[in-house]
Amino acid sequence: MIEVLNGGTRATIQDAGRPGYRHLGIPQSGAADKLCFALANWMAGNRWDAPAIECALGGLHLRFNEPTTIALAGAEMWAQINGQNVKNFSAMRVEKGDILTLSFARDGCRAYIAIAGGLKIAEFMGSASTYLPAEFGGFEGRALRTGDTLAISNRPREAPRKIPQGYTPRLSRHIVLRARSAAEWETLDKPSQRHLFVSPFHASAATDRMGSRLRGDRIKTAKNLSMTSSPLLPGTLQVPPDGQPILMLVDGHCTGGYPRALQIIRADLWLLGQIAPGSQVSFRRCFTEQPPQILQARNSFYGGLIDGFAF
């Protein structure tokens, strides 16, 4: 059993999410950074998609009331066990009574804590992922807080693993996302089309699992566009009338009424989970033939390490 001593800024239980329900208004949710989540589980000896803890920005303190193995991956949060520094992107043994503390995220937004065997969490619509706006999934449909106790599951697992050299993703406060045009790209005026790919943006304080409101050069449509509500995806960049774009994340609305300018390519979607308030966000244009090649290379690289994983 794991006891939450402090929930921190926002910590939730996530797994691979619940895709396939967007037509009912249910976003896929799941780990915002799918890659670091999968690496944490892999290091802990789990299947890549076992329920784990996602800690946004930091501040999470946990006490382990039984000996087990855990693994850390994602944003650097200066983790300590009983006051001793422990390494990010590694698995470690914890004893009964040990206390894990995470400080404040430095070079990303979210850290993942996987526990050997995974967490024991009832599934809702086929997933253990927490979806806060509708208060379902995960631990009572909410963020973790002081006094919560999490049970460890007995799923089959392997011995803890060490990440081979070259597989640790480099995270920073400057996020570069490769993108293709989305449905209303053509409606943007020419300066806006140029700005999107040359000017950096900054993630505002309005950044969470639903989306990130960006600040930077104003992005405008050439004409006033009256749109009916239309589908959105994680990684869609919407442009509201005030010209400050909104990047949709894993818990984002399934539909929206603003022009859709860009769509981040699938191979880069995991990076959206590492956008913190204040991060610099830049977009790079991807040409037609590139995304399948990038995806194939990334899938064979990480899929070769982590059984069953794909971006």
Partner: peptide
């Protein structure tokens, strides 16, 4: 259509 949030019907 359904969405933007669970249960909302357009």
């Amino acid at each position: 259509m359904m969405g933007f949030i669970p249960g909302f019907c357009f």
